[in-house]
Design a protein around this nucleic acid. Structure first.
Lengths: 224, 224, 224, 224
DNA sequence: AATGAATGAGTTTTCATTCAT
DNA sequence: TATGAATGAAAACTCATTCAT
């Protein structure tokens, strides 16, 4: 009687006209492609293909390649920020809290290699897209505050040094995991081992937690 | 008194037909360009221009863009390996040796941002060029052995823990500096500071040395 | 009576967005260019210009230069096969049938110098594109069967020898015309005549028909 | 104590400075390369490499690529002309003479595929180099005269028709072999056989001789 | 005579982006 | 919203030829 879709419709089901799904598919494809090839090495064509949609939709939904890159960054930043919010370190004793924090930082990178890849590229571009994104700017990481609180709490408990700068501690925690993942291939090649194996990854995880907690131990003889 | 060529001219100035100089100029330009733009983002044209030579000489001397990238990697690896050889840690007490080592690792990255940039790119390519380069494979880093010896010596002296794996310690030392430099721009943007300033760099340097030495302190109550 | 576009205009004239026409134009231009210059000597630029379209459309529609060459081969093979189908030799007495066949083979080459040129090039490449083209492989020439039938019929009629191999006869028929056209310029230069003139072409045509029919005459004294 | 060459010289013997040998090597390499790739597809570099000499020597000895192509043509024309001179057909009865002539034409092409390849290319260029070469122009083929004499002799002997034009007979003889070799690959692909095998080549040889002699038989009932 | 370096003008191909439907 | 065609600008790489030694 009318021509509403799906009457007795034999055309490919391809779920036409679901712009939100298209957007999501493109964004996922973009993150994967940018992580693989970098901004310069990625191809708009390839992203569209990965998403199973027409190339022009990239422009329709995101404007251009660079804007798509920014959207990809917003996405991966959004994910880590959301998980950081869920850590609830205040519920734990200082040492356990710090262990959870370091473990989380390590695990998130382990599970999200695309974050490492995108950040490398973004830094090559001098954080241009981050600076251009009010959305990312607004996503303040709670980690600095969490670290500060945990360090203070730990110092009060007598289990941590009290002279550590939270930002530097944050950078150290992140760096201990980041470098391992970011340079996994060259390190594996140079050391002629496979640092990508589950065994080496979990070894590294233990080392990092141990290393951080060890570094934060109070200085013997210091009067806290 | 005029500037006609070859008066009694000792400058290198436009020496015609000096293939070795041409090669060097190209290699330097390539390192700079690859560091700035990455392998995919770099332009052979641009590299030739930076080097002040004809574009086709890239192909004449290096084969193609990818081979040039490999040569650039060989160069930067060669430089750090050469400096590593010169550390002579065995001459120092364990703590001082470790401090020199950590300081060197930090300083070399500070002075050679191109190393960070090239390694990021190389890892994106799964260390393909490193694996293809017998030259790099042959440049064994002496650092692992140095770290092992220093850790052992420090344990004997009672100033270091004795349960630390040298490779993981190496990765930690490198990572603490690497992440700071590799992600300097995004970190600066996120924390709304300028981590590139001399002040912040030297703060970071002190933190890293302190952090490592602190982490390596012997475990209280352990019988070394 | 003016030339404003689309009055009641049935001409193809610059019809925008007619991909089929674009393809046809490119294919025609490619055949001409490949015939003139060969695969190696042809320029994609030139082909696009001849077709009056943007150069990149070659890649859009055909993939690359080599695929375009294969498409050109498919086109010229398709044309000759189509004409071969229309010969209907069975309707004629053996001698007349053979005469029509030889005449057709000669005339087709006379009218399609691009076929000679493309085949020369294709043979230089060891028939690589023909082997790669399922389409060409599927276009079985009916000529062998036609020749076989005609020879058999002629033998029965007592006008042809009965000991001739059809494939070799085919190659002979084709060769007698082919060499004349393929080497027309060098032959003209060597013999200091103009074998390209209508007079010489028609002389050759008569000779070829005469030669073939003469060769096929029954062997005197043989018992057919 | 001086540095004159070959004192007690252990350097590679490479027979330096034999310009005539260099020239020959280059010419042979050029014929091979031009036969393989055609004029447009051939690379001066590749020719020099095949010859084992420096690329610049091509220019030194031959001027440029095109002149080298002309020299290659002169060489292959020279070879066939020399062999043609040695046929001595007059010593044989007409039929045997014709058989030797046809056999020779076939065999020379079989043994010299580069002749076919070069002629194809030369015809694509409208015999430009042949016309430019006084040397080739001067190498008059004795074949036309030989054919004429043989035909006349055969007619007198009553074994040949007397109405055949020598040039057309020449073209037919050459064409029957030429097409088989020139199009061997496409014919093999189309007929799904291997016409390059010794068996098929010798079958073809017999066919060609048979075909020509059969065509030349006197017309029955004609009064010679 | 011989060599390797150097060059200018191409040549194929790629790619982000826009157009027409 | 979605599609395939079309485009301009560029990119990697090639190549005949010349230069300096």
């Amino acid at each position: 009687m009318n021509d509403s879709p799906r009457m007795n419709d034999k055309r490919p089901a391809r779920q036409k006209r679901d712009p939100e799904a298209t957007r999501r598919a493109l964004l996922g494809a973009a993150i994967a492609e940018f992580a693989d090839k970098g901004l310069a090495g990625s191809r708009v064509d390839e992203i569209a293909q990965r998403a199973g949609v027409n190339k022009q939709l990239v422009y329709h939904h995101f404007g251009n390649k660079e804007d798509l890159f920014r959207a990809a960054l917003e996405q991966v930043y959004g994910e880590i920020r959301a998980r950081e919010q869920a850590l609830h370190l205040a519920d734990l004793p200082a040492v356990a809290a710090m262990e959870r924090l370091v473990g989380f930082s390590f695990d998130h990178l382990a599970e999200h290699p695309e974050l490492v890849a995108l950040l490398n590229d973004e830094n090559r571009h001098e954080a241009r897209h981050v600076k251009d994104s009010p959305q990312i700017q607004a996503m303040h990481s709670p980690l600095i505050v969490m670290i500060e609180e945990t360090l203070t709490r730990g110092a009060r408990e007598g289990v941590f040094r009290d002279d550590m700068d939270a930002i530097n501690v944050y950078i150290s925690i992140a760096g201990l995991a980041y470098f391992f993942f970011a340079n996994n291939h060259t390190l594996s090649a140079i050391f002629d081992t496979n640092l990508d194996s589950a065994r080496e990854v979990s070894r590294r995880r233990r080392h990092v937690i141990d290393f951080v907690l060890s570094a934060l131990r109070p200085v013997a003889g210091a009067t806290a």
